[in-house]
Amino acid sequence: MSDELKLPLAGTPFGASPSFVDLVRSERPEAIPEALRRAAATELQVASATTVLGLRYADGTLLAGDRRATAGNLIADARMRKVFPADDYSAIAIAGAAGQAVELVKLFQLELEHYEKITGDRLSLEGKANRLAQMIRENFPMAMQGLVVVPLFGGFDERRGEGRLFYYDAIGGRWEEDDFQATGSGALPAKNSLKKRWRPGLAREEAIRVAVEALIDAADDDAATGGPDPARGIYPVLLTVGPQGAAEVPEDEVAAAVAAVQEERAR
């Protein structure tokens, strides 16, 4: 699929394509994951990223993820990052086939940056969410082979002045959430936890606490989700996107929220 507007005008294409994905596809097709299509992916033991969640709070949107990646019954990585800033005003969290997902994030980040530089304008949040849906849809042949990538996408809509949250399925279906959402193997316990704790208009500190608590609940019930491990300094990654842009929640703040939840549960 190419969204380049190809109107022949005096023999040349009309308008520069702002899409980085189209550019790589035409100039360096071997560099993008499509080249893997024919690989028998299902026979490979690939790392899988587990639970991520997103929620809306008073200032914007918060995305959070645990740190564990699994390959079968083994832990492939105890410190994996699953939550990334997509650009200055949006963030993406991934669950599913880890290598594939990280590559998707890298391409998506470049897609937004490339668009911004070529046109001199940031894409609207709606535009970013749609573009991501198309990119997941293009990944569908690999999803059929078991390399499923399901992200959450959240950002601050500068035109509406509010945070928005989107989630996707493996074939590129896109839904917008008003409150919260989780995906990955621990999504069910995480969602149950959020259902009890989330309420509209949470303050930033409360939102951090609610997200951390949901991840702890997910780790309690799902073997593939890693809980916080203060002894080794492994804490969930949290990103907030508000009117000031995307920012990672400092680790000491996450550690404090983790300590507060654990203390409450120890009693």
Partner: peptide
Amino acid sequence: IRLADLRGY
């Protein structure tokens, strides 16, 4: 921009 982005990728 195209050259730079492609090379960086």
